[in-house]
Design a protein around this nucleic acid. Sequence first.
DNA 1: CCAACCCCCTGAACGC
DNA 2: TGCGTTCAGGGGGTTG
Length: 285
Amino acid sequence: MMCEPVNEEERDMPELPEVENVKRILSPQLTGRRITGVNAIWPGVIAYPSPEEFSRAAVGAQITGMERRGKFLTIRLGDGGCIRLHLRMTGALLAAPADYPVEKYTHLRISLDDGSELRFSDMRRFGRFWLFRAGETDTVSGIERLGPEPLPALTADELCALLGSRKKPIKECLLDQAMIAGIGNIHGDEILYLAGISPKRPASSLDGKEWLRLSEAIPAELAAAIGHLAMTPEEYLAGGGKEYRDEPYLAVYGHAGEPCPRCGTVIEKTVLAGRGSCYCPNCQR
DNA sequence: CCAACCCCCTGAACGC
DNA sequence: TGCGTTCAGGGGGTTG
């Protein structure tokens, strides 16, 4: 009979658009604040340096801004240092009044001079924080291995130069952060759907028209996703910083077995790079 | 240089 | 009804 809608397909998995959204919401709230305390409830969340050194260097520093690079967030500090973090699968970052209910799985609480707190929660404990002091080079987080940013846009020629010699499936290339930064499984599937390219196609087999369509689909998908995620800081806080809202515009991701919104063909699912990949076998060749 | 595989971690889904 | 098993998934690391 009619069961309740099961399997709500997890809506976390922050990728570039979700991380950009976090930055846009939190940056105004954090910029100008001074860090007054660090409480690493689960010390493992701090990858570098030690939790004690992290706390010592962070306390007293003023936050001067926030940046995104790929799926990394960087909190700039007035002393020339920075705090860097990666949400990975289920991480969520939010700014809350000190007396605001604490999310389950909260591993780190950074108190600020206006009485608010920057909090990090992460059910699967994959997310990590790093802190680098002025002049210190980050060689541990992996940020230096990232490929170029896909926004505002990469041209067809640039994409072809980046990926065109790869024999791996194009989907695997899109997910490889060293080739292009920020694209994950969800938006990777959507990008290939928009471009009308099968995720299984070897990158080296794409022709000029396809590189052009891909160069248009990447920023179209990412920018649209960022737009869909726009919300007020209040909405963001109420959602625990991880409620990225339903993304009903998703055409193929999470829709295996359902009809393609464009042609009605049943969406198929395959595994590439160990990740489920949904696509329309008719629209994507 | 690259592919294959493991690991981290937990809740949801599944099987009996 | 309940318990044990399987699995996803970003990205770093190791092995072959």
